[in-house]
């Protein structure tokens, strides 16, 4: 039953994703990619929860590596997206320095 429930969530979210993303203008496609990339670092949540005090040693090693990679993905992804979006300015916002 749980599998059905999770699949339900998955399918609905895919449709929601299509709706949301098709409204993003091509000007913002690069920030969209790096921003959604940061979101895909959500595996960090699972990775954190897998590093438990009663876990097997090899599980902890895999989990810690997963935490490192996912954190790079999350922190780097959001930071670089923010850096890019900062540069998008309208003309009356003093586009030229």
């Amino acid at each position: 039953m749980e599998a059905v429930f999770l699949t339900f969530v998955f399918v609905l979210t895919i449709f929601l994703g299509f709706e949301l993303i098709s409204k993003v203008p091509s000007t913002l496609h690069t920030p969209l990619m790096s921003g959604s990339n940061a979101i895909s670092g959500i595996t960090l949540i699972g990775a954190l929860a897998s590093v438990k005090t009663d876990s097997l040693v090899f599980t902890v090693i895999l989990g810690t590596l997963a935490v490192i990679f996912a954190t790079i993905n999350v922190v780097g992804g959001y930071a670089v997206t923010n850096r890019m979006l900062e540069m998008f300015k309208k003309k009356d916002e003093g586009g030229a320095k």
Partner: peptide, 25 residues
């Protein structure tokens, strides 16, 4: 898929959003 493995909705929702975004692009 990892979200399905650990039965975690937030991984599924976030992952599916990114998956959809990549497919559209």
């Amino acid at each position: 898929a990892a979200g399905f493995v650990i039965g975690n909705n937030i991984l599924i929702v976030a992952g599916a959003l990114v998956g959809a975004s990549g497919i559209i692009l």
